[in-house]
């Protein structure tokens, strides 16, 4: 029997080995750096490879890291809004949005704004304590990648992406709300 997702351990997201990307299970090739480590992160000490930086660190180092643009992602905590990344989203390969608790729905707004306002086309990844029952809504808000915490078997979670076959509103996945589509009939 699969175990339920872990309770929020603290305020920080985990970085599991495997993730769901575009409705398939994949190895996690990114290294998410949580906040508040012992040493200060600088452009020089930052380990090589793909990293997801906390927003505050990215804001500070982004200019120095221009040459590594393809392997620098950003994660937003739930109290950090999408406009803090703004149009720079267009250039980023990956943005992660954190759910400190699954009931904290701020990341849904962040997702839609990144996709629909700031032209983000890279990987939009949910991290932290969200749950499978939120997958359709996350998907509709533009998330295409899901880093589940705990040891949940990802195979069983995929089907939750199919819970709904249509939707009432316009969102990141649907340009017109249902009433406009119906009125056109």
């Amino acid at each position: 029997m699969p175990k339920p997702a872990k309770k929020p351990v603290g305020a920080l997201p985990e970085n599991p080995e495997r993730v769901i990307i575009d409705r398939a299970i994949a190895d996690n090739t990114w290294n998410l750096l949580p906040l508040g480590g012992e040493e200060e992160i600088t452009a020089e000490t930052l380990a090589p490879g793909k990293v997801i930086l906390p927003l505050s660190v990215w804001l500070e180092l982004r200019d120095q890291l221009q040459s590594r643009k393809e392997e620098i992602g950003v994660w937003l905590d739930s109290d950090e809004t999408a406009d803090l990344i703004g149009d720079a989203a267009e250039e980023l390969p990956l943005i992660a949005a954190h759910f400190p608790a699954f009931t904290d729905g701020r990341a849904f707004t962040a997702g839609r704004l990144l996709r629909q306002r700031y032209g983000f086309t890279g990987e939009l990844r949910a991290v932290g304590n969200f749950m499978r029952d939120q997958l359709t809504y996350l998907n509709r808000c533009g998330f295409n990648a899901f880093a589940f915490q705990g040891d949940q078997p990802l195979e069983g979670l995929l089907e939750s992406l199919q819970d709904f076959s249509d939707s009432y509103q316009a969102a990141a996945d649907q340009p017109l709300p249902i009433f406009r589509r119906r009125a056109l009939l």
């Binding site: 509709r140 808000c141 009433f179």
Partner: peptide
């Protein structure tokens, strides 16, 4: 009714 359709299963606003 339009508000009902807009708000039903609104993906962004289910965890206010």
């Amino acid at each position: 009714e339009l508000i009902r359709q807009w708000s039903t299963f609104h993906p962004e606003f289910a965890f206010l």
